[in-house]
Amino acid sequence: MAPRLPYLSDLSDARWALMEPILTAWRAERQKNSLNLGGKVADLREVMNAILYLNRTGIPWRYLPHDFPPHTTVFGYFSAWTADGTIEKLGVHLHGIVRQQEGRASEPTACVIDAQSVKTAPSVPVDTQGTDAGKKIVGRKRSIVVDTLGLLLLVTVTAASVSDNEAGIQLLSRIAADRPTISKAWVDTGYKKKAIEHGATLGIDVDVVPRNTQVKGFSVTPRRWVVERSFGWIMMHRRLARDYETKPAHSESMIRPAMISNLAKRATGETPITWHKP
């Protein structure tokens, strides 16, 4: 059978080489506990290519091209990798590689936190949505933590009605547990007294960086511009222009392939696709 023609989102050999050990180890572990009935085994590289294709183009699962594995198979892997943290593990692995290439320690000591409210698709359960009163958006809220390079550390998805302060408290707790080297965090004015006090109890100095009200329109905000750029990277992936996922956990997991794609290209010296260089 002739090999299929490549898609722009396909992994290069170099990028796949960074991911293959983790995914192969995952499969080996799964096979230990399986009945091993001899069924057809999907190509892990093609499964990851399919996830990246869907993430980049924004198509529904059922619309995956026929030269990928069946959409039910790809979604099954995506669900399993979400549930057991494999997608997150891939991101952590690539994050450490990129930081070391940039001359930084693999574990960051400072971070930036921000949130983005997005509209949801009609298929998203109503009980997982809410209204962001400030931005007048009905949908869900993505709260992310990035390091000072703008690389994703943590993400949580909630109803848009959840305040930045409340989401910030949850993220700070997770940061303290997962990244004990972090002692500094920059946030905007939406993260108020409770989040700042909670950070202090965890040994994290939370510094509010306000927007310059003397400047009309857009202006670069110190420190916080890094996380705004990260949202820009994420929004280049059309699946994330709106929240289409039924489960909030899948919404969180769908954000990670966007950053995994960015990290893998950085790690291999390949140029990420931008608006200016299609």
Rank of each mutant, 00 (worst) to 15 (best):
A133L: 04
T120S: 13
K136I: 06
R140V: 04
E102F: 11
P222G: 11
Y53V: 01
V138H: 15
D188A: 01
I113R: 02
R142H: 12
G190W: 08
A249W: 00
S9A: 13
R229N: 12
P65G: 05
S230G: 09
P21C: 12
G103C: 10
R140E: 07
V41W: 10
L240V: 03
T213L: 10
L8M: 09
I137M: 07
A167S: 14
I144S: 03
L18S: 05
Y63R: 13
K247S: 09
A249V: 06
A83R: 06
V162H: 03
A83S: 10
D84T: 00
D10N: 14
G190P: 05
M48C: 07
D243M: 04
G190F: 09
P60T: 11
G58Q: 09
H71P: 03
G269F: 04
H276M: 11
K265E: 15
L5S: 13
K32V: 15
T72L: 09
V92Q: 10
V145L: 06
M235A: 14
A121I: 03
H95A: 02
V157T: 13
S261V: 05
A176T: 05
Y244R: 05
T131E: 04
S230I: 07
R242F: 12
V47F: 08
P65L: 07
V227L: 08
S261W: 15
H71K: 07
R229W: 08
G190E: 02
L152Y: 02
D114V: 08
H93C: 01
Y63I: 00
N36K: 14
E29Q: 11
N33F: 14
C111V: 08
R179M: 07
R223Q: 14
S12N: 13
C111M: 13
R45I: 02
P65A: 04
D114L: 07
Y63L: 01
S230W: 01
V74S: 02
K89M: 00
K216Y: 08
I51G: 00
T158H: 09
K136R: 12
T201A: 09
W26Q: 00
V209K: 15
T221W: 02
I175V: 15
E245N: 08
S79E: 10
A241G: 09
K194S: 13
A121N: 11
V146G: 02
P248K: 03
V220D: 04
T213M: 07
V206R: 01
G85C: 00
A264K: 00
R179W: 14
K277G: 09
G232C: 07
T213G: 10
D207M: 13
I51R: 01
V226K: 15
L171N: 07
N212A: 10
F218Y: 15
S183M: 00
L37T: 12
D147N: 03
K216Q: 13
D127F: 11
I113D: 05
A14C: 08
A80L: 14
A185Q: 02
S251L: 11
P180H: 09
E46Y: 03
A28T: 14
T213Q: 13
K193A: 11
I196F: 04
F75K: 11
S143N: 09
R56I: 00
A2L: 11
R45H: 05
V215R: 05
Y191Q: 00
S219H: 14
C111S: 02
